[in-house]
Simulated scan of single mutants.
Amino acid sequence: MHYVKVVLGVLLGITVFLFLDYALPSKNTVRVTNTYNRLTDIGANSMFYAAADTGTVQNAQGQRDIRFIETVRPNGKVFVYRNEDTGWIWPPYFKYDSSNLQAEATNNRSDSANPKWVSVTGYGWRIPMFSIYPNAISMRPVADAQAAPLNWPAMMILLVLGALLALLWRMWNQFRERTIDPAARRVSAAVDNVDARADAAMDRVGQEFTEAREGFTGWLDTWKGKPRDPK
């Protein structure tokens, strides 16, 4: 049972970590190289795209006209964002300005000779094998490639989640101390009482059986001509 609890705890921890890693906003300093729209097949990876009623209308072939933003990081590695509205659906970024963001990204395009660096806030993962892209939420210009603005939104969300977790843990401990522990002690005492009564009953049965056997043995001895044990 101990190992089952450990495994379940590890799986729960991994699930929570992956959930937060995907849903929390992240900031990356990048240089925008291109912006465009592309008909994209939405199939088994649909959970990593905006809901159909908030994103671009999907055609009969399961394709959606999605905006993309191509960027380059300071280390030279490329990174591609999608640019979709989120609406009121998960995750709750309430984004409705993907057209404005696309125009802003287009205005900030630059080349390596005259770079313009921007900090892009987004969420999600980039998994090329499954055509999964992070969704850009906003961007703002920064001074240079070394600029690394603090990720205040993620920090505040984690702080609030930590406070809620601490509150729930405290409430659970109080509930356990006031309700579960006393009930467990009462059940344990009742079980001990039952065990004690059972042991006493077994002792009485054993004693009566011994007395009955000795009495029967004495009675048989009288038939054999032996004097009966005065006990």
Rank of each mutant, 00 (worst) to 15 (best):
D221E: 08
V205E: 14
L167S: 15
K95I: 01
G76Y: 14
W172E: 15
R228S: 13
S26T: 05
D181T: 10
Y81L: 08
S112Q: 09
F130Q: 11
L159W: 04
G9Y: 03
Q174E: 12
T56S: 10
A183H: 09
A212N: 07
I180Q: 08
G43S: 04
R228T: 08
V80I: 14
F17E: 09
M47Q: 00
A196K: 10
Q207E: 13
L12G: 03
E214A: 02
R204Y: 13
T40E: 11
H2A: 07
R64G: 00
A143Q: 07
R176A: 14
Y36G: 06
F19P: 07
F79H: 12
Q207W: 09
A189D: 00
E214V: 03
N37W: 06
M171Y: 15
E208W: 09
D144H: 06
L158S: 07
V57M: 07
Q63M: 08
D65K: 05
T71Q: 04
R178D: 13
G206D: 02
I127G: 13
Q102H: 14
D203P: 12
D195Q: 12
W172K: 00
A198D: 03
G162C: 05
F216T: 11
I127D: 04
P74F: 11
V160E: 02
F19C: 04
E104C: 13
N135S: 14
R176W: 07
F216I: 13
Q146R: 06
K224F: 02
W125F: 15
Y123Q: 03
Y133V: 02
I127H: 08
Y93A: 06
A23C: 01
A105D: 10
G215I: 00
D65Q: 03
G162H: 15
R64C: 00
R170T: 00
N151E: 00
G124C: 05
P134D: 13
Y22G: 05
Y81N: 10
R38I: 04
S46G: 02
P230R: 10
V16P: 09
Y49H: 05
V118F: 03
R126C: 15
R109M: 14
A166E: 01
V160A: 12
V118E: 14
A23W: 08
W117S: 05
S188G: 04
L11E: 04
G43F: 03
M129V: 02
T56D: 02
Y123M: 04
A147Y: 09
V16S: 00
N45L: 14
